[in-house]
Design a protein around this nucleic acid. Structure first.
Lengths: 286, 286
DNA sequence: GGCCTGAATTTCATATTGCGAAAGCCATAT
DNA sequence: ATATGGCTTTCGCAATATGAAATTCAGGCC
């Protein structure tokens, strides 16, 4: 088309724009990007490029640049077939993290109840990035008891009830990333073979809880179960630990019942798979 | 009290930085801001400034600027007492919008069921920004029927079952913003007095559904009920419309039962207040 | 109380970065 | 085929974000 191949230097003089809206301490491009996200939300979660440019009165090109960045980070996605921008999956991830903040507060009454009924040491743990972290502890009141692991990182997800309970529900890639630290042997019961662990996790999924029979510490048996939210995403887990001397089938069953009751209730509080025993649930229409 | 009032020129030569990580089409500052949000999430929803600066290997000052912007937009908040940055409330708002995207898909079987059982025209609506929007319709199969309102904006939230059903559960400021368009009179039944509407909404909250008795269109009676999620936030609403000639108490009760059953089920799908009849629920510990 | 340490905030000069006009490129409608 | 309108990409310019340093703040310790 354009016969004239003139240089076309772009712009000549930009109107001042006056720093967004008189704000001095905020970064323009970031502010604009966030504005875009808000706008998509206001438009019902999906919007076309020009819609966005109009509503935000940003240059369409600028919008495109900003959206590209938002997409790279998963805050926005392009819906496959159509020419639409939609809110991305990362947003849901983040909302999980939001809820997770008050996980300890919400879990506390359950931890106390389990501690009271079983008499054993009870732990609350969560996933933070690619590590498992202990968030809260209720100590056993028995004379012989499992000593409180200190709060903080759990280095051995493959060998603890917490770790297995949570790993079981993760997408494969995330599970692998968490296990990237390796599967060190701690006792003769430690699972050190990857495919063996995968099989163990399959069973955890089916049963709804994980057992660590002296796989990490000799003489210590733990039972753990995951707390999951609406989308089935793991939020955290609760476990109880008992010394082998008390680890009868009966006692383990008690611990298991208490813990799964608590994680089921907490999952429900977070909108997760409540009454259903395991795997995906699907509500049936009226 | 700097005795020396020397110019203090700041920096002299910056290391190249090489565009983040070889990405050409993404905006640095935005990318970094989003990285910060991700990082806070990875750190369990709360983090201190220096933690963030270290983990992201950004200059602490830059972090601060970025966080200020994120705070301005509500994506991040400072936790009151402590020196911590936490994920902000906007994130949860956004996640609602995310879920809302597949509201029509999820609602469809319910709409069909209501349509089949009552024989009346059924509508699905949602809040988008500060307007009420119709998302889907199932037409009545009666000869005499309420004609399909076209999809799109509902201009009269104060005079429709949809509008009242949703307004009832909104925080006051948002309700006022939506009503900012005014409370126009359409029929002699239209509620045009604000405090009268507030009282009506109180009843809607208690009963769990709203009725429009010819308040918008003469001869048309509608029943509507809201769909709400985990946090109690309104996601949308379902209504059915009948001509006055069929609007017996019996028929209205049928519509009400069908609709509230559907909105209760959908609310549960979104993690909302399922079985409970109305108002806040609070789960009791084990 | 006053002193000290480490963290949070603010300032400000600079050049790096983001901006947006215009050109190029797709779809889809006519 | 051809036109239309929305989506991407390019690229020079200067406005903008950056980060070293100075300043203020919080709180532990004599």
């Amino acid at each position: 088309m354009s016969a004239t191949v003139l240089p076309g230097p772009g712009n000549e003089a930009r109107p001042p724009v006056a720093r967004g809206g008189a704000e001095r301490n905020s970064i323009q491009s970031v502010d604009r990007a966030l504005l875009l996200v808000d706008t998509i939300a206001e438009l019902g979660g999906e919007a076309t490029l020009t819609e966005l440019a109009n509503r935000t009165s940003l240059n369409i090109s600028t919008c495109h640049h900003l959206l590209a960045t938002l997409i790279k980070r998963g805050f926005v996605m392009k819906v496959p077939g159509k020419r639409l921008y939609a809110l991305g999956g990362r947003i849901l991830h983040l909302s999980h993290a939001c809820l997770q903040v008050d996980l300890p507060r919400r879990a506390q009454p359950y931890l106390e109840s389990i501690n009271r009924v079983t008499g054993e040491t009870v732990h609350l743990a969560a996933l933070q990035g690619d590590t498992v972290v202990t968030l809260a502890v209720r100590d056993s009141r028995h004379a012989v008891r499992v000593d409180t692991g200190k709060l903080g990182k759990i280095e051995a997800p493959h060998a603890t009830a917490h770790g297995k309970a949570m790993l079981a529900w993760l997408p494969e890639d995330e599970m692998r990333r968490i296990l990237a630290h390796g599967m060190k042997r701690f006792t003769e019961n430690t699972i050190t073979d990857f495919s063996e662990l995968v099989e163990a996790l399959r069973i955890v999924r089916r049963k709804g809880y994980a057992i660590d029979r002296e796989e990490f510490l000799p003489g210590v048996v733990c039972v753990g179960s995951a707390i999951r939210d609406q989308a089935g995403t793991v939020i955290g887990s609760i476990s109880a630990s008992t010394p082998r001397m008390r680890a009868t089938d009966e006692h383990i069953a008690l611990m298991r019942d208490e813990i799964t009751a608590a994680t089921r209730a907490l999952s429900a509080e977070f909108g997760g798979p409540g009454v259903q025993s395991a795997d995906r649930q699907r509500a049936v229409a009226v």
